[in-house]
């Protein structure tokens, strides 16, 4: 399990990374944490001629909690985000999700940006990005553009990024409502494995306990992580109860199109999607309610 030969370039700036991408185009792959890329190369499923290392670009490692958004550099390590106290308070969904991502050793090296760019439909961070409607700032030698998560994820391991583009920043929107609660849960064969199904929910309540905002997402049950803005919009203005969670979860699960594999059939995945969706909504709602 040795990778095929390739050439290595260590980019010292984003501009240099973009220039290398421009030069080598789809002959090149960017490597961030490498926690998915390196195994795929070891199994010779991927054979880039060039590997452009962006791990040494200090400008890609920042975490900035601003008033309306958490901005993270594409190369911010998962463990750094997980340990960030402000993220834990202001964006608990991200912290909750990170606890499910791999293991200590992989989170120390793995990056949030890398996980998004890899776009595994059962991975945790793409689901959070999809649910929150994160924005991706993409950079190429030609300039920058920002696209929303729903356009970013285009299929299994595929994104809207052009071969010469590099993910520069992720903008995770902060909900301003004081009474916001969130939950991330998943079912995997073993802890730390890719999820058979994952669910993320975030709910904001007004002081009367009426829903002012809600988001729900499911991972592992479609070609991309799925969000259900159409369904959750219905909750706004209502007081949520057990029936709402069940009903919404059922409808969300019905909209999923999961595949079958060794560990779970499509029918099982769809069923579990409904179960986890309801659990996530229930727990997120409970957390929002507990904020006085």
């Amino acid at each position: 399990m040795k990778a095929p030969p390739f050439e290595y370039a260590r980019a010292t700036s984003l501009a240099e990374a973009c220039e290398l991408l421009r030069r080598y185009g789809d002959e090149a792959k960017l490597i961030a944490g490498g926690q998915s890329l390196v195994p795929m190369m070891a199994m010779r499923l991927l054979r880039p001629a060039w590997l452009i290392d962006i791990n040494e670009i200090a400008a890609l490692k920042f975490v900035a909690v601003e008033s309306e958004v958490v901005r993270t550099g594409a190369c911010a390590r998962q463990a750094v985000l997980e340990r960030d106290a402000t993220i834990g308070v202001r964006m608990p969904l991200l912290k909750q999700a990170l606890a499910w991502v791999g293991h200590v050793q992989t989170r120390n090296r793995g990056t949030a940006g890398g996980s998004l760019a890899h776009a595994d439909p059962s991975a945790e961070l793409p689901l959070v990005a999809q649910v929150l409607g994160a924005g991706m700032l993409l950079r190429s030698a030609k300039g920058a553009r920002k696209i929303a998560a729903e356009e970013f994820f285009t299929g299994p391991m595929s994104t809207a990024m052009a071969p010469d583009e590099c993910l520069e920043e992720v903008h995770w929107p902060l909900w301003q409502e004081r009474r916001t609660g969130s939950e991330f849960t998943e079912l995997s064969a073993r802890h730390g494995d890719f999820a058979m199904v994952s669910a993320a929910a975030q709910i904001a309540l007004d002081s009367e306990g009426r829903c002012v905002r809600a988001a729900l997402g499911l991972g592992g049950v479609g070609i991309t992580p799925l969000a259900f803005p159409g369904l959750t919009a219905r909750l706004v203005g209502t007081r949520l109860g057990e029936n709402d969670f069940e009903q919404l979860a059922r409808e969300a699960a019905a909209q999923c199109d999961p595949g079958s594999d060794l560990h779970a059939s499509a029918a099982y995945r769809r069923h579990v999607a409904g179960v986890l969706a309801a659990r996530a909504l229930r727990a997120a709602h409970g957390r929002a309610e507990s904020v006085q």
Binding site: A189, R190, H191, G192, D193, F194, L262, H263
Partner: peptide
């Protein structure tokens, strides 16, 4: 990834 040896979690 597919042959599931139990970890300290399991």
């Amino acid at each position: 990834m597919d042959y599931l040896i139990p970890s300290a979690f399991e």
